[in-house]
């Protein structure tokens, strides 16, 4: 920047922004979780996921996103409810499954992670294509609403109240510098059942209230 005329561009929001109406459709949706049969089938599957993550991580920092997961199980329609033994056998997993498994992986690494729900802007062309794809697999596509979609990921604690948002299906960290457009994050809701009082987390200079939708 011109040193004499620096304009601060980072969003320095100190107040929680207003929620937009596009989240209404998904207000009652809980974050996804994987079920367990309580038997060896699910125990073996879950152990494989956790041990495999340990191997894949190698010497990388614990905060490294588990990108191997969507590489092995690309994003696609998934029937719900889903058990661990079913999840490992699928060719594709949707964002709910990616989120729920990644949540377990981060936790096993000793990293605090909370389920996060996103609303993202795309285009009618993109959502029409996805609608067809989900339809072909006879899986409901309630996550699509016009040109916006519901998506899930993880809010991973970096330090204290500071979090990063992991898109477990895309295999990348969502950039806090959002400027709208195709793929833009419109809203985010971070779940934290343990939060007793209203609590907020910091994401790239923004404050995000937990357990409620935040406009980005």
């Amino acid at each position: 920047m011109y040193l004499a005329e620096v304009e601060t561009r980072a969003v320095q929001a100190t107040e929680v922004p207003e929620v937009t109406s596009c989240t209404a459709k998904w207000d009652s949706w809980p974050a996804s979780t994987i079920s367990h049969h309580g038997q060896a089938c699910c125990e073996i599957a879950r152990e494989w996921m956790l041990a495999n993550d340990f191997s894949q991580l190698g010497d990388a920092a614990a905060l490294t996103g588990p990108r191997w997961l969507p590489k092995k199980y690309p994003w696609g329609p998934s029937p719900w409810p889903m058990h661990w033994c079913e999840a490992v056998g699928r060719k594709k997993l949707d964002c709910g499954a990616h989120q729920a498994i990644s949540q377990e992986l981060f936790t096993a690494r000793g990293v605090q992670s909370r389920p996060a729900q996103f609303v993202q802007q795309f285009s009618e062309d993109a959502t029409r294509h996805w609608g067809h794809k989900w339809g072909e697999d006879q899986v409901p596509a309630g996550w699509i609403d016009g040109d916006v979609i519901y998506h899930e990921g993880c809010a991973v604690t970096v330090d204290g109240d500071e979090v990063k948002l992991w898109d477990a299906s895309a295999g990348w960290w969502i950039d806090p510098q959002q400027s709208g457009g195709y793929g833009a994050l419109l809203n985010v809701r971070i779940f934290d059942p343990s939060a007793e009082a209203p609590q907020s987390l910091s994401w790239g200079g923004r404050q995000l209230a937990v357990n409620r939708w935040n406009a980005v």
Binding site: I44, W48, A51, F54, S55
Partner: peptide
């Protein structure tokens, strides 16, 4: 080596 230990723990458990 550490990865191997992690898998060994899983094998013992299962």
């Amino acid at each position: 080596f550490d990865s191997m230990l992690r898998w060994c723990q899983s094998l013992e458990r299962l």
